[in-house]
Lab assay of single mutants.
Amino acid sequence: NQASVVANQLIPIQTALTLVMMRSEVVTPVGIPAEDIPRLVSMQVNRAVPLGTTLMPDMVKGYA
């Protein structure tokens, strides 16, 4: 099973992502693949992302 990127904390809207905000976890449905974590650093979320939420491509500006 492929690991996805999951929020390690509440990430407020417009926040630039850092490594400490994300973790990898095998979840359903599958979100952004964990191997993309380095690419996500400094990208902004376009909505508030609660703790434990799987990051989906449409939540990160410039990802999809």
Rank of each mutant, 00 (worst) to 15 (best):
P57L: 05
M56T: 13
I11P: 01
Q14M: 12
P12K: 08
M59G: 03
V5T: 06
V6N: 00
N46H: 12
D58C: 15
D58I: 09
V45C: 10
T53K: 09
V26A: 09
N46T: 14
D36Y: 11
G31K: 00
S42V: 04
E25F: 06
R23E: 04
V5R: 00
L40T: 02
N46V: 11
N46S: 11
L19W: 09
V27K: 06
N8E: 06
L55P: 02
D58A: 11
A48H: 14
I32F: 02
E35V: 12
V41P: 01
N1D: 15
M59I: 06
G31C: 04
A3C: 12
I32Q: 01
M21L: 04
V41R: 05
V27T: 11
L55K: 00
Q44V: 13
L55D: 02
V45L: 09
P33H: 08
V6L: 09
L55H: 01
V49G: 01
L55C: 00
Q44G: 03
A7P: 01
P33V: 10
V45Q: 00
A16Q: 11
Q9V: 10
Q14R: 10
A3E: 14
I37M: 13
A3S: 11
G52E: 02
S24T: 15
P57A: 11
P29V: 05
D58W: 10
E35Q: 11
Y63W: 12
N1H: 12
A64R: 10
R39S: 08
V41Q: 06
Q9G: 04
T18D: 05
A34T: 07
L55G: 00
V60Q: 01
L17W: 03
L19V: 11
E25Y: 06
N8S: 10
L51W: 10
G31N: 00
G31H: 01
V41Y: 01
T54K: 04
V30D: 08
S42A: 11
L51K: 12
V6G: 02
V20R: 11
N8P: 01
G31M: 01
P57W: 07
V26H: 11
N1K: 07
I11D: 02
N46G: 08
T54E: 00
Y63T: 03
Y63K: 03
M43R: 08
L17S: 00
G52A: 06
I32G: 01
P38T: 13
G62W: 09
M43G: 02
R39L: 13
T15G: 05
P33Y: 09
A7N: 01
G52F: 04
M56F: 09
Q14E: 15
R47K: 15
A3V: 07
V20E: 10
T53P: 01
V5Y: 00
V41N: 02
M59E: 00
